[in-house]
Design a protein around this nucleic acid. Sequence first.
DNA 1: TCAAACTTTGAATCACTGTTCAAATTATCT
DNA 2: AGATAATTTGAACAGTGATTCAAAGTTTGA
Lengths: 204, 204
Amino acid sequence: MATEQDAPLRSPHVRAKRQRRRTEILHAALRAFRQRGYHATTLDDIAEQLGVRKTALYHYFPDKEAILYACHRESLTELNRILTGARALDTAVERLSYVIREHVRVMTDTLEGSPLAFEVTALAPDRQKEIIAARDRYERALRRMIQGGVAAGELRPTNPKTAVFAILGAINWIARWYRPDGAMHADELGAEFAEHLVGGLTCQ
Amino acid sequence: MATEQDAPLRSPHVRAKRQRRRTEILHAALRAFRQRGYHATTLDDIAEQLGVRKTALYHYFPDKEAILYACHRESLTELNRILTGARALDTAVERLSYVIREHVRVMTDTLEGSPLAFEVTALAPDRQKEIIAARDRYERALRRMIQGGVAAGELRPTNPKTAVFAILGAINWIARWYRPDGAMHADELGAEFAEHLVGGLTCQ
DNA sequence: TCAAACTTTGAATCACTGTTCAAATTATCT
DNA sequence: AGATAATTTGAACAGTGATTCAAAGTTTGA
């Protein structure tokens, strides 16, 4: 725990270097968690990707759970970025399609991980509450998009809750089968998902 | 291991009783695996649900992995049943809707578990191969349904692979949020999912 | 170049959990 | 009721993997 909030480090350069390393660890963890899940991933797995012993990780994170927590945080930041981008668009269909495309992209490119797909139950109660709350905010935002679209006559009346679960389920599941070297390219995937998942909501 | 293939048990009654107990264990495991995942679930967790010590489980299964394997098997049987039912229907839309409704029902009612959602990587290589092959057969069957629908002019041209991933993702994700005591009732859920997920495929 | 700060390491510890096994308990069947 | 089979138990074991820590190695900055 001491490593986290230590006295100010000497120089900005050193501080930046440390930050870079933290990010490297985070991404290695992201990748591993995505593939094998949190519990099946050992600290050795993560360390090995970085060519380092697992004890080195403790210089950057107090424990394994903290790494998972950081993964969640980083992912949720990404999702909020997406929401902000979506708000600039005009129609509900555009907004929803954008969110789906971008969320898929986050799953495949940026984070090589799955924002909402990580096991939240492995977190300590406080952190769990925080992450779940943030996740709920995201889900609520999507629901409101759908409700808005229905109100505007763009979408046919649907249960927004179910619709959002279906959309997020489809997206989160990507973590289970997507492999960067596979035949399916990320961009098309997002576009097709958007078409398919929004298509089921539009008025005939 | 000896417990599995033992000499014939004395009476049909005893045999049946043993089978019932096996099923009880299986369902307790299914429930636990669904909620916490395989690795986070301990044998104590499973045993506790049955009011028994974990060592009792070894009388029915040789080890933890065997329980997971049995879960997979049982689930896949259920999916095959669904496919058979679907084949009796006339149109691709009907068949797909049926599969989605029934698969959702399996997720919520029957098995209180998630056929394809269990970690397959925890299985030994042979078993893993077997389960993956069965899962692939199911996915291929769904893809063919979609392709048939496209060929018949019922569905608009789509990448069947992506579409099936989206559908199965939405369904499998149910395991992560669905709680039997929640507000959402299973039947409606299936119907809404079918409408939403098939709606995105139909011709306008 | 050298001392101080930073990073990584190897060895040791600790807790957890899957597994074994012999003994105790309970159910079955005549 | 009593012999036998079936089931459950508690205690012990073993392996894994997270965590601690002091020491070694490396980088930084004057």
